[in-house]
């Protein structure tokens, strides 16, 4: 076995997982939770207080929501890090990577804490 002297595989793995989550899950939630329900196009019993409270209290739903938020954050962090480079910011690459992935980690912790308290 060879040695990999970089942590990039971790970030790339999270980026890839986030890319799949963002592709598979985000569009339908944007459509349903961002447009259909707000515009009254969904049956009201779908978002009754009782049903919603039961849904967001369920541990499986909480885990699902954590993945839905956290992994796209890592997906964003990775792409944004290179986007800044592409835009001509060639200095401070380590600091930029630290800030981007750091923001995703903080976002994940805040998301987990928020969901635990629901």
């Amino acid at each position: 076995m060879y040695k990999i002297n970089t942590i990039e595989p971790l970030w790339w793995g999270l980026f890839g997982a986030g890319g799949f989550i963002a592709a598979f899950l985000l569009p339908v939630h944007m459509l349903v939770n961002g447009m259909l329900i707000p515009l009254g196009a969904a049956p009201q019993e779908a978002y009754s207080p009782q049903r919603l409270a039961a849904l967001v209290s369920h541990p499986v739903v909480k885990l699902y929501l954590l993945a839905l938020v956290s992994l796209p954050l890592f997906h964003w962090a990775h792409r944004f890090r290179y986007l800044l480079f592409d835009l001509g910011i060639h200095g401070g690459r380590t600091a930029i990577a630290f800030l981007c992935y750091g923001a995703a980690i903080v976002g994940t912790v805040v998301a987990a804490w928020t969901l635990v308290r629901v």
Partner: peptide, 29 residues
Amino acid sequence: YMVRELTAVFGALWAILFLAQVPLMKADY
């Protein structure tokens, strides 16, 4: 390609704003 990379900003921002609504669904309908 740059537009493709930019899509990640919208995905992440939307997810955060959606998450912010979740506690309200139960606590402040």
